[in-house]
Design a protein around this nucleic acid. Structure first.
Lengths: 160, 160
DNA sequence: TTCAGTGCAAAACGTTTGCAACACA
DNA sequence: TGTGTTGCAAACGTTTTGCACTGAA
């Protein structure tokens, strides 16, 4: 089994600058953690793993928010109600699905995505575009696709 | 288009007693609201609809928790991060999927479930049983299926 | 009558923000 | 050096619990 980092030859610092972000100590640490994890993490879990480097929770919160705005990290509503965060792999995969044990909470990532094919079908039949999914299917409905429709509503935390 | 209640000839009070629950004014009101909604609701939304009957938020919280323990209501991690609750239909359907507009938040329920077939395949290949899904796939792993494995861990709020 | 169920209010928790000090470009 | 970033700490909103009163069985 390969690790997620196999796909990421690019150094965190380089990757950050490529995306127009400053490469600070805290940010590099956070990217490393996200990069190394095979499963989405909560903000608390990320903080737990970077606190040793003197990184504050607020920094985790704000930086992950920035990554999500730039769509470099994907927010996932986990089945237990927690909100988790997953870095987007740079190998073409945009998301993953998981098999979670209700008893021991073990998580197994699944490579396959059965929904994609269905997603295309739904998009065709209902006239939606830009569909994506993590839990439920979501997209933009015909009315909202019309030019001049109200601006896309921000989801999640925003940055100052 | 039919309403969800088409499937529910049983009166809320009768249904509650059948499931070993007391039929109080507040509980009947909450069941009615859940029954009538085509989409999962947040606790705040449920409370909003029953507050006119003098039903407290804590009552909504505790009663929905009881229904979830008895698996009469299913908890859903919504894509916007909210936690929602959906009553289990008594017509064989155990869950639904939804098409959500990112712009106007409109929700369209989808009848089809493409994951079921996949779920069976996963269950076979990985030795899982009792799989279900709403966002991620979940089930019980081989180790936890062994007789004498540790008791099933409670999810979500518990009752006193 | 009795005890489960409820309302009220406070506690616990997670998320979000303001501000002064700090560090990268 | 200057502006974006950070740590600290407080403000929020939501979830959860304790306790005394109430009402269904």
């Amino acid at each position: 089994m390969g690790t997620r980092t196999d796909h990421h030859a690019i150094e965190p610092a380089t990757w950050l600058r490529q995306n127009g972000l400053r490469a600070t100590h805290a940010r590099i640490a956070i990217v490393r953690i996200l990069d190394a994890s095979p499963v989405p993490l909560t903000l608390a879990e990320i903080h737990e793993k970077v606190r040793s480097e003197g990184c504050d929770f607020a920094t985790v919160f704000r930086f992950v928010s920035i990554l999500e705005e730039k769509e470099l990290v994907q927010r996932v509503a986990w089945i237990d109600g927690t909100t988790r965060h997953e870095i987007r792999a740079r190998d073409g995969h945009h998301h993953h699905h998981y098999l979670i044990c209700r008893t021991c909470q073990k998580v197994e990532p699944l490579d396959e995505c059965v929904v994609e094919r269905f997603e295309n079908q739904i998009a065709r039949e209902r006239g939606y575009s830009g569909l994506s999914h993590s839990l439920q299917l979501s997209g933009v409905c015909p009315e909202c696709q019309k030019p001049g429709a109200k601006a896309r509503k921000k989801r999640g935390p925003t940055t100052p």
